[in-house]
Amino acid sequence: MLTITVSGMHGGVGATAIVANLSAALQQQGLRCLCIDANADNMLRLALAVNPEETLGWAKSSLTHSAWQDATLQHEDGRWVLPFGELNVDELARFIPTWASSESPLHDIFYELQSLPLDCVVIDGPRSRLLPHYSLPSVDLTLYVAAPDAASYALLKQDAKNWQSPNSRILINRLQPAQELASAIASFIADDFEERMVPCVVHEDLIVAEAQAELSSVIGCAPDSQAAQDFQSLALWCQSELQSREK
């Protein structure tokens, strides 16, 4: 079972969209996927067409001492999704210390996942600076999602040693080649973190947002779009990267 964690450099870089579409591409390429939302915003459910009224999730289950399996839902294309669960501010304050401790419920969940018929787990993680504080089970690959903007570049430079671990890779999302500033920043990032970069990028494509609005993935609703192509390439790269590491 392959485990990929996706973590945004800052809000709005599109990490959740990456999780939704990357998992759709992996699923289409024949891997049985589970997406876990490990972000307190609990937004992944929207990208995976979960009923907005639904409040269940693994954090919620942990608080209510119910089984996390009951909160797991299946998308029509076959992907499984485990939302975070809707917690109010007090509940969240109560939950965070447990999550950050070594008794995080995620450990148990991961332990139990090992026996399930899954090929791949994609985790929508907290943003990059918070990621180390939350106890996430060991992962095969962490994708740090950066947008070609000044904030992402600054954060990348600031926490430079974070990306040095062999499992970490930086992915550029929402690239607009027509904008000179964006493509200049993208090439700065690529030059500075040469070896840590994912060799493909994801372009800014309106279809990503539209697909989400239509409760679908770009793979499903716009196979001709560049975004679909980008996510297919990204999924292929993830697979080959993880396979080469297994060897």
Partner: peptide, 14 residues
């Protein structure tokens, strides 16, 4: 070789 077409609407085509 592959290229990307960017439409004025903000959509990208492969």
């Amino acid at each position: 070789f592959p290229v990307v077409l960017e439409l004025p609407s903000g959509h990208l085509l492969h």
